[in-house]
Design a protein around this nucleic acid. Structure first.
Lengths: 188, 188
DNA sequence: CTCGAAGTAAACAGGTCTGTTTACCTATGG
DNA sequence: CCATAGGTAAACAGACCTGTTTACTTCGAG
């Protein structure tokens, strides 16, 4: 009863690879079907339209960060290191969600809502960790940390250089420490 | 001798509008020619290929920031306000250079080099101002401020909300002040 | 053994894309 | 006055896009 991965999964894997590497608009469904080793008819059996496939691609990319008991500050800074590693290995092509928003004109496309949700979900991850650190305004700082991450992703896409991630990590340290100190030292 | 703007300029203006609003891949040359009120033949007389037109579009967007004698800190923070205003007026669609890199697969396309140059030029603008502020490491801080800006542009593209620009401005203040203090107070 | 589900390959329909070509139309300077 | 530069409109070539259809194959369950 050996069987390679189900067609649906192979199609999704092929779409993920090609959409991410080359862009959503740059890749046609024929190419995806060929990459998946599947006929176009089968592809359309699993995904009624290309838009459905795009939505499935982003939904599959919508991962939560594994919760951890490590110190909050460490977790946040380690996230910058993870991004640095992603950039360093060469196949980095920016944030798939941001790229999708760039490539898709229609604001009503399901992909846009997914992108907004994804970014908010990440922001809440920072916020929860920052609350444990007792910083002054966890919500505002969460937004700021995410701006740094977003900046790294865009900059790395353009420059292809992981140095930005290190700079962002340093900036994050300053922002966090500043918010911690401001809260513990004085009360104003 | 009245004459509306020269065809070349009208074509470029139409390309700028359509490329920025809808994306480079989403807009065809027919649409641009129609928007410019020009025949396709004329368009191809001025720009031999669509890629040439894309390069011209980005070259025209490659503006320097007007130099000013205002205090350096103020100039930097005011830049965040300018971005907030751009986002607020609704027609904001992200950074044209980053968008071009996202949409163009080929790393050898002239647009990629333009994008890299543009980002570096902006970074140098920060660096020059930060040198006047005598901060500890102007180059590193310039990178960090630019990460914040880049983050705002990406976030505003996804969320369509200018709140990110305010958060970035606040973060920039913390980073700058921290770097100034660290330099003037102690020497370590 | 046979039926049906699920797959393949390949052609097709109808659009759109970039870029070229054809034939015609002005306007202006010498 | 008229040649010519520079414009228009429209068709065309050839490629590629999404999505459909047709005809054929494979395979496992009852």
């Amino acid at each position: 009863m050996y069987k390679q991965a189900a067609p649906g999964e192979r199609i999704l894997a092929a779409a993920d690879k090609l959409f991410y590497e080359q862009g959503i608009r740059a890749v046609g469904v024929d190419t995806i079907a060929a990459e998946a080793g599947v006929s176009k008819r089968t592809l359309y059996n699993y995904y009624a339209t290309k838009d459905d496939l795009i939505a499935a691609y982003l939904t599959a990319r919508f991962k939560h960060i594994a919760p951890s008991d490590a110190p909050a500050r460490e977790q946040i800074l380690a996230y910058f290191d993870r991004i640095a590693a992603m950039v360093a290995d060469g196949s980095f092509r920016g944030c798939p969600f941001v790229n999708a928003v760039t490539e898709i004109g229609d604001r009503k496309h399901a992909a846009i809502a997914l992108a907004v949700q994804f970014k908010e979900q990440r922001r809440q991850w920072y916020r929860a960790l920052l609350e444990r650190l007792q910083v002054k305004d966890p919500d505002a700082l969460a937004t700021q940390l995410q701006l740094l991450v977003e900046g790294v992703l865009a900059t790395a896409l353009v420059r292809g250089d992981p140095g930005a991630a290190r700079a962002a990590r340093a900036a994050a340290e300053v922002l966090i420490d500043s918010a911690v100190r401001r809260n513990t030292r004085r009360k104003r």
